[in-house]
Amino acid sequence: MANHIVKVSPLDGLAKPAGSNVSLEERRFLGKVTLRGNPENKDFLSKVKDVLGVDLPLTPLTYVAGGAYTVHWVGPDEWMIHTQEDGEHALVLALREALEGIHSQVVDVSDYYVVMRLSGPAAREVLAKGSPLDFHPRAFRAGMVSGTRYANATIQISQLDDQPSYDVQVRWSFAEYLWNYFVEAAREFG
């Protein structure tokens, strides 16, 4: 039966940038889990580390990547964890079990958001068209993540390397709009 289950993404069938200076790929069905908890609670931090294998990033606008998980700072008591497709189920269970009795929230948001990878020499130019965030290397570098806005969409963006490459996370229902905006914005750069 499972073989016949159809999964859809809002980015199915959408055109990609035509040129070579901007590349856009969907990170299809990436696992995503929202974690909320008190960063001053040592117990919380250590229990989470036991599950994730890395420390929760407590410095604003940073993320840590280790093993199966990339953990993004979202707010002072909120993190966004990315993992491979379907990895979210085990992660949610593991975190909930580890955090039993500790005030926290673990929510599977794998389908609430869609992640796309924007990269290439003109990626910064594409971002500058719709976001008021400063993407200059002096202001935003690999290892950083931030919430911001791109045109009408609220996004979370993290920089992966100096190519530069970015992971852009957006709500499911804004994904088609954002993708098409990126494609149009990229057109002039070839």
């Binding site: 859809v8 809002p10 068209k129 719709g130 045109a151 009408n152 969409a153 229902s173 804004f174 088609e176 709009y177 098409n180 905006y181 149009e184 914005a185």
Partner: peptide, 19 residues
Amino acid sequence: AGHAVGELFLQKRKTAMHP
């Protein structure tokens, strides 16, 4: 207006069942 014209003027939010 910039690129925010036509289809990009305003997001059309759709559910998975839209097709």
